[in-house]
Nucleic acid binder design. Structure first.
Length: 1079
RNA sequence: GCCCGGAUGGUGAAAUUGGUAGACACAAGGGACUUAAAAUCCCUCAGCAGUAAUGCUAUGCGAGUUCGAGUCUCGCUCCGGGCACCA
C-alpha cells in the first residue's frame, strides 16, 4: 500500500529534532531591533522553575503563545518572543532546607532541565535573550530601582500589622494572603505587628483604576483589579466627641438621620485616648482580646462584638448625642477607623444593635426593619428637611449642606493598601539598605537663604524654622553678608562655610535672590532637595528691565544685584547633585514673571504655581512646609550607594536555622556605614519575587546590558508588550504590580508609557479526571508521554484544537489519536499534488485563508484548525501545489516541525517558519460553489436513502444508475427572490405576490404557491447564494466522476426542461430530483 | 453576603446582528481492504415512534417578548472563579 508505506516512514520525533536543530543553526528566530519593520511583542508570563518537567498544562500555555508569535512573524512583523525564569523564591530555599542543595544550584539545575524540555516543544523563542532573575546582573537593577524609589519617597519602612505565614516563616503582601491563606502553601495566615518595607502603590490608585479603561484585557481581570483598588465616593463628616472633631467616612450620607451609635475600631491607635476613665479598663481588655485574634479565618467566624467607651458623639446634623462603642468589626486602616452606625440600613450595624439592644431607626422607606436591615436606596423619612427625597438626590443635597456648613467634605477612599515587598527569607534580592545607629542620631539640615536686602528674621523664615525644628530638623537661617550690596563671592564663601558638612540628606531653600545663591551652592554640594521660592531666574534680562528695577528701588544697589543675578549657573550639575528640585512661584509676583519657569526642565523640576501670593513674603508658608515633609528621612536607614550595587547575596549561609538564613553570615551582616563609615548592620530582608517580575519584560529588550537596566531606545522600540499571555491567578498580584512599576519607571524617566501590556489573554486550565492537572494531585500527563509516542506536533495540535485556549479543557488520551490522523492526512496530501487549479479550488483556498487568519487573530484556534481540516477533506482528490503550500503555511503555526519537513519534501529550500503568511483574495471566493459543495453531502445522503428504500421493496435488486434532474431555470430566480422577500416579511401571500410580478416566474404561476410553501416550511431549501441552472449543471458535471466512484453507480444528468421523468417536478435549486434505476 | 463567568448529545465542544441546534472531533456500532492484526477508507450516531418518508420532544428550571429564542427580558436552581466585616 503506497500510502501506508509513506506514513510509516515519517518519524515525527526525528522530524522535530531535525528542524529544531536547523532552526537553531540558522538563527531563524533571532530578532533584533529594526526601525524599518513593525514590531510585535508576544510574551508569556515567565515560569517559576520549580518543577523540572512539563505537563500538558504547561505545553498548552506555551503553545498558545508560540502559535500566535509564529502567526505574527509570518505576517511580517518583527516579533520579539522571549523566555526567562522567575528563579528567586521559596521553593528553591525549601529544597535547600530539605535536601541540602544550595538554592542557586537547585534553581540553575531546574532551569537547565526546563530549557531542555521547552526547546523540545519547538517554540520560536529567541533563546539568546533568556534571563534569570536570581542572577546579579538582573537583581542589581531591582536594588537600583529600589534606591531610586526611596529617593522619591515611593519606598518606605513602617511598623504595621502584617500577614505572616508560619510555614514560609515570612510576611506576605495583602494580595498574597488569598482568603486568609498563603497563596503559595495554603497555610492559615497570622497577623503580626512588624517593621516592613512597603512600596507606595496607593500613590497610583486612581491612575491604576483609570488606566484599566483603555486596556484590551478580559473584563474579568479588569473587574478584579477594579474591586481590588476599591474606589468609593462618599463624605467624611465630623462628629464631635468631648468637643473634639472625629471624622467618619460614609458612602450613605443619606442615612445620617438614622445614626443611633458610633463604632470605633478596636485597633484604632487613638482608642484609649478617646474612652472615659470608668470604661478604660474594659475597653483595654476588649482591645487586647481583639488583637489576640490571630488568623483571618477566626476573624471571619467571629460574631460582632463591642464595648461602650463611655463617651457620646454629637451628630452634626441632628445635634443628637449617640453612644460611642469600640467594635471588632470596624477596619482600623480604612476610611477613618470609625463609623457612624445606621442599624436600620446596614446589616453589620443591625446585627450589632440587636445584640446590644440599641435603637434601630428607619430613615429610608421600603424595607422591614423588624426582620433585617434595608440596605437598598429609597425615599427618605424622619430626615428633617431632606425627608421625601430619594437616596441619590439626598446624597447630593446633604453633601452640599455639609460642605457649606463646613461639617465635613466629599471624599474618596480606596481599599488598596501599599505593597509589602520585604520577605524574611534568603532566596531573593537583598534590600540595599544599611542601618547605622550613628546616623540615626543625626538631624537632617535645612538651610534657608534670604534674598536681596533680606533678613533672617523676615517673611516666613522664623515660622518655618520653628515648625521644622518641631519635626526634628536642624534649621539654619543665616543673615547674608551685605544683603543690600550683595557680592556673589562673599555670599558663597559664607554659605560654603555653613554648608560645609551638608550631605545627600540635607535641604537648601532659596528665596528670591537667595534662589540664585542656592543654585550656585547646589552646583558644588550633593544634597537631597533644592527649593527655589520666587527666585530671580539666572537669565540675561534686557536693559529696560534693569532700568525698571532702578526706578522701583531708587535707593538700592541694582548694579550689585545685576552682577549677582547674571552669574551663570550650571544646571546639569545642579540637577545631578540633587535628588529633588522644587520651584514655587506666584502668579502675581511683581518681580518674577511666570515665564521664568520655562527655564527649568519640566521633567527634572517639580513646579508649583501659587495664586496671588505676590513675591511670597507672608509670615506663614504652609505649602512649603508640606512639601518639606515629603523630604523627611530616617537618617539611620542608609541606602547602599549606586557604586556599591549589587549587594550580592552571600552563598555561604546556614539553612538549618529557623530564622532568615542571612542572619547567619556575619560578613554580610556587619558592614561600615556608607555615609559615616562607622560600624553598621545590613538589612537582611529580601524583596518578594513580585518585584522581579514587575519589570522583566523590559529586560528582554536588552538582556545583555551591563551598565543599565535596559537600553531606553530598545525599550522604546519593543515596548509595550502587544500580546501578554498568562493565567488569571495573577490578576491582582503580578498584573497590578507590573502596572504600578511601569508608572514608577515612567516618573523616574526610564520609560515613556504607562501600561506595560496592551492586550492580555488568559489561557484556561488543563484538567484530568476532574482536577486541575498538577503534580500534587498526581494526574499529570508529561510532555514526554505524548511526544515519544506521537511527536510533539501531535500534542500541540490536539491542545490547540480540542478546546478554545481561554477555556478550561479536559485532557483525553484518546483524543490525541485524532490529531495524529490529521497530521498524517496533511502528510499524505503531499502525494496528491496536481497541476491545475479550478475555480472551485481557488474559492476553497481563499475561504480557508480568510477563516484561519481571522480565527487565529482572535485566539479561536479550534475554529482555525477546523478550517484546515475542511480544506483537507475538500482537497482529498488532489491539490494544486500553490494551495498545498499555503495550507501548509497555515498548518505550520500549529505543527511547525512536520510542516517544515513537508515544505522541504515538496521542493522548497527556505524555512516555512520564516515564510510569509498567505493572503486571501476575496473576489475568488464564490459563495455559489461553496453552497453547492455543502449540498453535495445532502445529495449523496438522498441518493443512498432512495436506494435503501428501493431495496426494501425487492431485496435482490441492485441499483445500476441514477439520473439527476436539475431544477428548471425559473426556480433559481424564484428561490432567490423569495429569500430576499423573506428577509422583510413572513407573510406567504405577500411573498407569492412579489414573485408573480416577475414575468418569467409568473408563467409558472400555478407552481409558485407550492414552492413558496415548501420554502417557508423548510428553510433548509433556501439557497443563501445566487445560483444558476448552468452553474449547478456544470458543477455536477465536475462532480459526476467522483460521485459515480463513491456510490458505485452510473450517473446521468439532465435539465428539468429536457426531462420526461415525472420526478422532475421535485427538483429545486441545489437539490436535483433523483431517479434511481434498479436491476 | 457582594462582584464576575457558566449550564447545549455518551464525551470535548460549534452556532455572525434572534433565522437549518449539535459544525469539527473523540468514544461507540456497522462495513470495505487484509491469512490476521495495525493503519487507512466508507457508513450510522440527540431522544421517542416508525422498515421508511415523516412526526413529535429537545440547548439547567419557570414565565415573557417575537412570525421565529441556545441567543433578548424577568424570576429561580445548580456549578466554577474572585472579594470578603472596606462603612
Amino acid at each position: 500500500m503506497e500510502k501506508g508505506e509513506k506514513e510509516e516512514r515519517i518519524d515525527l520525533n526525528a522530524v522535530a529534532k531535525k528542524w529544531q536543530k536547523e532552526w537553531e543553526k540558522n538563527k531563524v528566530f533571532h530578532v533584533k531591533k529594526d526601525s524599518k519593520k513593525k514590531k510585535y511583542y508576544v510574551l508569556e508570563m515567565f515560569p517559576y522553575p520549580s518543577a523540572s518537567f512539563l505537563h500538558m498544562g504547561h505545553v498548552r500555555n506555551y503553545t498558545i503563545g508560540d502559535v500566535f508569535a509564529r502567526h505574527k512573524r509570518m505576517q511580517g512583523f518583527n516579533v520579539l518572543y522571549p523566555m526567562g525564569y522567575d528563579s528567586f523564591g521559596l521553593p528553591a530555599e525549601n529544597a535547600a532546607k530539605k535536601e541540602g542543595i544550595h538554592p542557586r544550584k537547585y534553581a540553575n539545575d531546574s532551569i537547565k532541565k526546563i530549557i531542555e524540555y521547552q526547546k523540545a516543544l519547538g517554540n520560536s523563542y529567541d533563546w539568546r535573550r533568556v534571563i534569570s532573575t536570581c542572577e546579579p546582573e538582573y537583581y542589581k537593577w531591582n536594588q537600583f530601582f529600589f534606591t531610586k524609589m526611596m529617593e522619591k519617597g515611593l519606598v518606605y519602612r513602617k511598623k504595621a500589622p502584617v500577614n505572616w505565614c508560619p510555614n514560609c516563616e515570612s510576611v506576605l503582601a495583602n494580595e498574597e494572603a488569598e482568603g486568609g491563606k498563603c497563596w503559595r502553601c495554603g497555610t492559615e495566615v497570622v497577623k503580626k505587628d512588624l517593621e516592613q518595607w512597603f512600596m507606595k502603590i496607593t500613590a497610583y490608585s486612581d491612575e491604576l483604576l483609570e488606566g484599566l479603561k483603555n486596556l484590551d484585557w478580559p473584563d474579568k481581570i479588569k473587574a478584579m483589579q477594579e474591586n481590588w483598588i476599591g474606589k468609593s465616593y462618599g463624605v467624611e463628616i465630623n462628629f464631635s466627641i468631648d468637643s473634639e472633631d472625629w471624622a467618619v467616612f460614609t458612602t450613605r450620607i443619606d442615612t445620617i438621620f438614622g445614626v443611633t451609635f458610633m463604632v470605633i475600631s478596636a485597633q484604632h491607635p487613638k482608642l484609649l485616648s478617646l474612652c472615659s476613665k470608668e470604661q478604660r479598663k474594659e475597653v483595654e481588655a476588649f482591645a487586647k482580646k481583639c488583637s489576640r485574634v490571630a488568623s483571618a479565618e477566626e476573624e471571619n467566624l467571629l460574631e460582632k462584638e463591642g464595648v461602650f467607651t463611655g463617651k457620646y458623639a454629637v451628630n452634626p446634623l441632628t445635634k443628637e448625642k449617640v453612644p460611642v462603642y469600640a467594635g471588632n468589626f470596624v477596619v482600623a486602616d480604612y476610611g477613618c477607623g470609625m463609623v457612624m452606625a445606621v442599624p436600620a440600613h446596614d446589616q453589620r450595624d443591625y446585627d450589632f444593635a440587636k445584640k446590644y439592644k440599641l435603637e434601630i431607626r428607619e430613615v429610608i422607606k421600603g424595607g422591614n426593619i423588624k426582620e433585617r436591615a434595608y440596605v437598598d436606596e429609597g425615599v427618605l423619612v424622619n430626615s428633617g428637611e431632606f425627608s421625601g427625597m430619594n437616596s441619590k438626590e439626598a446624597i447630593e443635597k446633604i453633601s452640599d449642606y455639609i460642605e457649606k456648613k463646613k461639617l465635613g467634605k466629599r471624599t474618596v477612599n480606596y481599599k488598596i493598601r501599599d505593597w509589602l515587598i520585604s520577605r524574611q527569607r534568603y532566596w531573593g534580592t537583598p534590600i540595599p539598605v544599611i542601618y547605622c545607629e550613628r546616623c540615626a542620631k543625626k538631624k537632617q539640615k535645612v538651610l534657608i537663604i534670604h534674598g536681596f536686602e533680606g533678613k533672617s528674621n523676615s517673611n516666613w523664615f522664623p515660622w518655618l524654622k520653628k515648625e521644622l525644628e518641631k519635626q526634628g530638623f536642624e534649621v539654619l537661617v543665616p543673615d547674608m553678608p551685605n544683603a543690600a550690596h550683595p557680592r556673589l563671592e562673599e555670599w558663597m564663601a559664607a554659605l560654603e562655610k555653613i554648608a560645609n558638612d551638608f550631605d545627600g540628606n540635607d535641604i537648601i531653600i532659596g528665596h528670591s535672590l537667595g534662589g540664585n545663591a542656592a543654585l550656585h551652592l547646589a552646583e558644588r554640594k550633593k544634597i537631597s532637595s533644592l527649593y527655589l521660592i520666587a527666585p530671580a531666574p539666572p537669565v540675561q534680562y534686557p536693559k529696560s528691565r534693569w532700568d525698571w528695577f532702578r526706578k522701583e528701588w531708587p535707593n538700592s544697589d541694582i548694579d550689585a544685584l545685576k552682577k549677582f543675578h547674571d552669574a551663570e549657573v550650571n544646571f546639569a550639575k545642579v540637577e545631578d547633585n540633587s535628588e529633588r528640585r522644587v520651584l514655587i512661584l506666584s502668579d502675581n509676583d511683581p518681580y518674577i514673571p511666570l515665564e521664568a519657569q520655562k527655564l527649568f526642565d519640566d521633567k527634572r523640576w517639580e513646579k508649583i504655581v501659587l495664586h496671588e501670593r505676590g513675591h511670597i513674603l507672608e509670615p506663614e508658608f504652609k505649602e512649603l512646609f508640606n512639601e518639606l515633609m515629603k523630604d523627611k528621612k530616617n537618617l539611620g536607614i542608609v541606602p547602599v550607594p549606586e557604586k556599591d550595587l549589587p549587594v550580592l547575596l552571600p552563598e555561604n549561609v546556614d539553612f538549618k536555622a529557623r530564622e532568615n538564613p542571612l542572619l547567619s553570615n556575619k560578613k554580610f551582616l556587619e558592614v561600615k556605614c556608607p555615609r559615616c563609615n562607622s560600624p553598621a548592620r545590613r538589612e537582611t530582608d529580601t524583596m518578594g519575587g513580585f518585584v522581579d517580575s514587575s519589570w522583566y519584560f523590559l529586560r528582554y529588550c536588552s538582556p545583555d546590558e551591563k551598565d543599565k537596566p535596559f537600553d531606553k531606545n530598545d525599550v522604546k522600540y519593543w515596548m509595550p508588550v502587544d500580546q501578554y499571555i498568562g493565567g488569571a491567578e495573577h490578576a491582582v498580584m503580578h498584573l497590578i504590580y507590573a502596572r504600578f512599576f511601569t508608572r514608577v519607571l515612567r516618573d523616574l524617566g526610564y520609560v515613556n508609557f504607562s501600561e506595560p501590556f496592551t492586550k492580555l489573554f488568559n489561557q484556561g486550565i488543563v484538567y484530568k479526571d476532574g482536577h486541575k492537572m498538577s503534580k500534587s494531585f498526581g494526574n499529570v500527563v508529561f510532555q514526554t508521554d505524548i511526544s515519544e509516542k506521537y511527536g510533539i506536533d501531535t500534542a500541540r495540535l490536539f491542545l490547540m484544537f480540542v478546546a478554545s485556549p481561554d477555556k478550561q479543557m479536559e485532557w483525553s488520551d484518546e483524543g490525541v489519536e485524532g490529531s495524529y490522523r490529521i497530521i498524517m492526512r496533511m502528510a499524505a496530501l503531499a502525494g496528491k499534488i496536481k497541476e491545475k487549479s479550478t475555480a472551485r479550488d481557488e474559492s476553497r483556498i481563499n475561504i480557508t485563508i480568510k477563516k484561519v487568519t481571522e480565527e487565529v487573530e482572535s485566539f479561536q484556534y479550534p475554529k482555525a484548525v477546523i478550517a484546515i481540516i475542511e480544506a483537507l477533506d475538500y482537497y482529498a482528490r488532489g491539490i494544486p501545489k500553490k494551495h498545498y503550500e499555503e495550507l501548509l503555511k497555515m498548518f505550520s503555526i500549529f505543527c511547525p516541525h512536520i510542516a517544515e519537513e513537508l515544505w522541504h519534501q515538496i521542493g522548497n529550500s527556505s524555512f516555512i517558519s520564516a515564510e510569509r503568511w498567505p493572503k486571501y483574495d476575496y473576489s475568488k471566493i464564490e459563495p455559489a460553489l461553496e453552497e453547492l459543495s455543502k449540498r453535495m453531502e445532502i445529495l449523496k445522503d438522498d441518493i443512498r436513502r432512495i436506494i435503501h428504500i428501493a431495496k426494501q421493496k425487492d431485496e435482490k435488486s441492485e441499483a445500476t444508475g441514477a439520473k439527476l434532474i436539475v431544477s428548471p431555470s425559473w426556480k433559481y430566480k424564484a428561490v432567490f427572490l423569495a429569500k430576499k422577500q423573506m428577509e422583510n416579511t413572513r407573510n406567504t401571500g405577500d411573498i407569492i405576490k412579489a414573485l408573480l410580478k416577475d414575468n418569467e416566474i409568473s408563467s409558472h404561476a400555478k407552481d409558485v404557491p407550492n414552492l413558496v410553501g415548501k420554502l417557508m416550511k423548510n428553510s433548509q431549501l433556501i439557497i443563501q447564494a445566487e445560483l444558476s441552472q448552468e452553474g449547478e449543471l456544470s458543477f455536477l458535471k465536475d462532480e459526476k466522476e467522483f460521485l459515480e466512484d463513491e456510490l458505485s453507480l452510473k450517473i446521468a444528468l439532465e435539465r428539468a426542461e429536457d426531462s420526461a421523468e415525472g420526478k422532475k417536478e421535485q427538483a429545486l435549486p441545489g437539490k436535483p430530483a433523483i431517479v434511481i434505476k434498479m436491476k
